[in-house]
């Protein structure tokens, strides 16, 4: 299924709030534990107790430092998993049809029993969202927890991705980005949700909410009336005290 659907009924995806993410890696590990026991082959680890431990993860959290033209440097924690692109180059390059984008909800998946492990889709993805499992020899990627979000064995409120459910700061949101009534759609509208590397033309479904402006002193004139009171007068602090106490 290497051709992309012309359009999908829904655009399920994640909205990640960079203003709120504290970089705790909870989503990283929750994703690993859910997915290593669920969809497809386990997410293996090589040399797990040795010199170069390395394993398959579907979600990773980077930390960036941003130096604005003025003011102190800022730090932004940056979780990254598959963005379930509308124009997903990872799908069209796949020679076997293993990679596909679902018509009903737009989730980009790998059908592992068709995957030959050629790695081409990982090359095609600009975002590093695909990792080849070294033990199984098939391509792994975020499934948007397709085996949770419709899973009737899971209580309804938990039919959300594992990473979203676990995020302690509430920085991850899941929903249908094609639905203007959805929470995620509104968040994107309100907070100016952005695409990563739009110049790649992938049209990611996942959106990132930029950090709110930081280190900007408030506009209220706090220095004037608020801090300049009692002591200026002849009676000083204790004069103020007496006057105030009178009123109590």
């Amino acid at each position: 299924m290497t051709t992309l659907p012309a359009s999908t009924d829904k655009k399920l995806g994640l909205v990640i709030d960079l203003d709120t993410c504290v970089g705790c890696h909870a989503c990283v590990i929750s994703c690993k534990e859910w997915n290593t026991g669920s969809y497809g082959a386990p997410l293996s680890d090589q040399d797990p107790y040795g010199a170069e431990p390395s394993g398959t993860f579907l979600n990773r959290v980077h930390t960036y430092e941003v130096s604005p033209p003025s003011g102190p440097a800022q730090v932004v924690h940056f979780p990254k998993s598959c963005l379930h692109c509308e124009d997903a180059p990872c799908v069209t390059v796949c020679p076997t049809g293993a990679s596909y984008k679902r018509v009903e909800d737009g989730i980009v998946l790998v059908n592992e029993s068709d995957c030959i492990g050629c790695g081409l889709c990982a090359w095609a993805c600009p975002y590093g969202a695909r990792e080849m499992d070294q033990a199984e020899g098939v391509m792994k990627k975020c499934t948007l927890c397709v085996d949770r979000i419709y899973n009737e064995n899971i209580p309804e409120e938990d039919q959300i991705p594992s990473c979203v459910r676990t995020c302690p700061a509430g920085a991850r949101h899941f929903g249908d980005l094609a639905d203007p009534e959805s929470g995620v759609f509104k968040l994107v509208e309100m907070r100016g949700g952005m695409d990563l590397m739009p110049e790649q033309g992938t049209k990611p479904v996942n959106k990132y909410l930029p950090p709110r402006p930081r280190d900007n002193p408030p506009e209220i004139d706090v220095l004037g009336p608020l801090l300049a009171q009692s002591t200026d007068e002849a009676t000083g602090f204790f004069g103020w005290l007496d006057r105030t106490l009178e009123k109590l």
Partner: peptide, 28 residues
């Protein structure tokens, strides 16, 4: 542009998501 953070200032990796190697680094 990769992070969308360029409007804020110069962006630099401070800490990688994993201290060891991974498939992406080895391959790409």
């Amino acid at each position: 542009t990769a992070t969308g953070l360029s409007p804020m200032g110069d962006v630099r990796l401070l800490e990688a998501p994993h201290s060891g190697p991974n498939y992406l680094l080895r391959e790409m």
